[in-house]
Nucleic acid binder design. Structure first.
Lengths: 345, 345
DNA sequence: CTGAAAGCGCTTACAG
DNA sequence: CTGAAAGCGCTTACAG
C-alpha cells in the first residue's frame, strides 16, 4: 500500500458543495470558470473551496471529461540546448491552463521505429494533442500517421506547407539575409556559405537569405562558394577546408555557416591552419548557442526566439483543443542578428 | 467538443470481460499481472483483450487506485546536455513500468520561489514520487518540504547523507584521482586545480580526488595551486589567469578544471595569452560535454554515466512506490577518464 | 442561474 | 482461483 494515498486527506467537490450549500455541479462550474454562476454564489463557493484547501482531482476530471489534459512533446535529433528551450516554452503555456507535459524524445530511433513508438503513444498516452519538434515535424510518414488518427497537433518547423495543421517557425530567411548584409556592409563580397542539413527546412531558408542579400547588393552568386553540410561540427571543418583551398583571388573573406556548430568547426579549422579571425576570415553562424560566447573571438550569429516559438505552438494547440479551427495557420517569429568579434565587431 | 473523444471507440474492461466470459475483476487481475489467475483463464482474457485491441484507461485506473502513475523530475540549474541525458535515463525506466514523466525545471527561480512552486506541484501534480536533480537535490529547504509532505523521492546527488531518502551519484572522487594520476604519470607535479561550485557536492568530491592522487604520489599539496570557481566558463578564464600569473618556478604545468566549461575557459585564456596546449600547459576537465571534442586540442576529461544514474534513481523510486523500504540506500556508479590531446594523448 | 441523476472505467475490500 | 458490490471524484446531458 502506498503511503501517500493513506496520508492524503483529500477534500472533494462534495465537501465544498456542502459547505457552500450548493450542488456539486455549481462548484464544478465555478472551478472551471464556466460562467452562468451568479457572482454571489461564486464568491461563496470560492471561499468554501479556499477554506477547505480544495484542489480538483485531475484523475476524476480526466475520466469524466474523457480528456487527459496532457500534451505530448515529440522530438528527435535537435540539439539539447534547443530542446530544453522548447520544453521551457511549452511548459510556460501548459502551466497557464493546467495542462501536463509529456516528453517523448525519439532521438535514437529510425523512422520505422519512431512510427511504431508514436503509434503506441497516440493510442496509450491519452494525450489530447501533440507538439512536434524539428526536424521530425517535417517527416511525412509521421504527419500522415497523426492525421490518420485524427490526433490534433502543431508543428515547430520552417516548412508550413507540409500539413494543414498549424505551424510555428522563425523568420530565418530574413535573419540570414540581414546577417549576410552586415558582412557586405563590412566590405566583404566573396562570402562562403556552408549549407545546413537538407532534411531541415531551415537549411533552405538560410540559403535563401544568403542569396537574397547578395542579390539585393548586386553581388553575383558564385556556386563554388556554396558548400554542403548537415549542421554537424565536422561539416564546418570540411567546409572551411574546401573553401579556403580556393585560389587566393576566389577564396572567401567571410564564411556564413548555417549553424553555430559548423561555424565553430570553421573556427577550429582556421585556428589549426593559422588563418586569423576576423582579420583574414570573418565567420558567422546561426542559433546563438551557449558556446558561441565561449570561443575566442566570440561568434557572430543569430538568436532565435525558441521559447517564444514553443509557447506560441502550445497556445495554438490548446486553442485547437478548445474547439477553435486553426486549419492552415502559420506563424513566424522574428530572429535577431548578434554581432560579435568573429566578424570584427 | 473535442474531436478525439468523439472518434475514440474505446474498448473497456467490461467488453473484454464479456467476451472472455469472466468478471471484470479477473480481467483487471490479468492486466495488472496480479497472479492468482489460472493459466487457462489468463490466456482467454489475454486473447480477448488482444482481439478487441483493449488498452486500460489510465484515468480510470488512477482514480480508482488513487495513484497517478506519474513521476515528477525536478531540477534547476544543471546544464542542458546533462538534463537531457537525465531525462533519457528516467524515461527508459518509466516506460518499462508505464509511468508517465512530468518535468519541472526550476532554473530561473530563487529558492523561495522553488519552495512555493514545489509545494504547488506536490499538492496538485498528483505525482506518486519525485526525482531531484543536482544541485537542487542538496537543498535542505526542499528536502524538508518533501519529507514534510511524506512524498517519496530519490536524489541524484554526490552528498548521500543529506537525507534518508535513496541517493544515486557517481564515483567522481575516484575518477578525479585517476585523472590527476594520469597527469602525474606524464611528468607533471605542479598541477593547478580550479574548484567547482561549492553548492554542488561534486565540487568537494573532485577536490578530494585531486588531493588523494597527489598524496598517493607523495606530491605536496600547495594551496596556491588551488583556486575557486563555480563551474562557469568565466571562472576557468579567471582561474587560468590567476594560476598562470604565478612566478615561473611555481606556475603549474597542468590545470585540472573541475568541469569542462571551466576547462574551456582555461583553454581560451591560454590561447589568448599565447600559452601552447599541451606543450606549455596540460588542461583537463570533467563531464565530457559535447564541446570537449570540438575544441582543438580536444579536451581530456571524465565521462559520467548520467543516463545510468538517472535510470537507477528511477528504479529506486519505483521500487519504493511498490512498497520496498530503501531507507538510506546510496549507490554510486563509476566514471571513466577520457584522455585526449589537451594533456598530450 | 441552478441542480439531480447517471456514468466515465477502473480498483478496493471483501466474500467465497 | 474467482466474482459481486461499492465507490474513486469528477463531468455530461438534461431539466427547470
Amino acid at each position: 500500500m502506498n503511503q501517500r494515498a493513506q496520508r492524503r486527506k483529500t477534500t472533494t467537490i462534495k465537501q465544498v458543495a456542502e459547505l457552500a450549500n450548493v450542488s456539486i455541479k455549481t462548484v464544478s462550474r465555478v472551478m472551471n470558470d464556466e460562467g452562468n454562476v451568479s457572482p454571489s454564489t461564486r464568491d461563496v463557493v470560492l471561499s468554501a473551496a479556499q477554506s477547505l484547501n480544495y484542489r480538483p482531482n485531475m484523475a476524476a476530471r480526466r475520466l469524466a471529461s474523457r480528456r487527459s489534459f496532457m500534451i505530448c512533446l515529440i522530438y528527435d535529433s535537435a540539439a539539447s540546448d534547443y530542446m530544453v528551450e522548447v520544453q521551457f516554452g511549452v511548459l510556460e503555456r501548459c502551466d497557464a491552463d493546467h495542462y501536463n507535459l509529456l516528453i517523448r524524445p525519439c532521438g535514437e530511433m529510425r523512422t520505422s521505429q519512431i512510427r511504431q513508438t508514436l503509434e503506441q503513444i497516440i493510442l496509450q498516452s491519452n494525450a489530447d494533442g501533440f507538439i512536434l519538434g524539428p526536424p521530425l515535424a517535417d517527416n511525412r510518414a509521421i504527419l500522415e500517421l497523426l492525421e490518420g488518427h485524427g490526433a490534433p497537433f502543431v508543428r515547430i518547423s520552417q516548412s508550413p506547407k507540409r500539413s494543414r495543421q498549424p505551424c510555428v517557425g522563425v523568420e530565418d530567411t530574413q535573419a540570414a539575409s540581414e546577417l549576410v548584409s552586415r558582412l557586405i556592409a563590412r566590405g566583404h563580397s566573396r562570402i562562403g556559405l556552408i549549407r545546413g542539413n537538407p532534411k531541415h527546412g531551415s537549411a533552405s531558408d538560410r540559403l535563401a537569405g544568403y542569396r537574397r542579400a547578395l542579390t539585393e547588393h548586386d553581388i553575383p552568386i558564385r556556386e563554388e562558394l556554396i558548400v554542403s553540410g548537415r549542421y554537424e561540427f565536422d561539416d564546418g571543418v570540411a567546409g572551411a577546408r574546401q573553401l579556403l583551398a580556393l585560389p587566393a583571388k576566389r577564396r572567401p573573406t567571410a564564411i556564413f555557416a548555417s549553424n553555430d556548430h559548423m561555424a565553430l568547426g570553421v573556427m577550429q579549422y582556421a585556428g589549426a591552419s593559422g588563418v586569423r579571425i576576423p582579420d583574414e576570415l570573418a565567420v558567422c553562424g546561426f542559433d546563438d548557442i551557449e558556446f558561441a560566447r565561449f570561443v575566442w573571438p566570440r561568434l557572430t550569429t543569430v538568436n532565435q526566439p525558441i521559447r517564444g516559438v514553443a509557447r506560441t505552438a502550445t497556445d495554438l494547440l490548446i486553442r485547437q483543443l478548445d474547439g477553435e479551427n486553426l486549419d492552415g495557420v502559420s506563424i513566424r517569429l522574428p530572429a535577431s542578428v548578434i554581432e560579435r568579434e568573429s566578424t570584427g565587431a
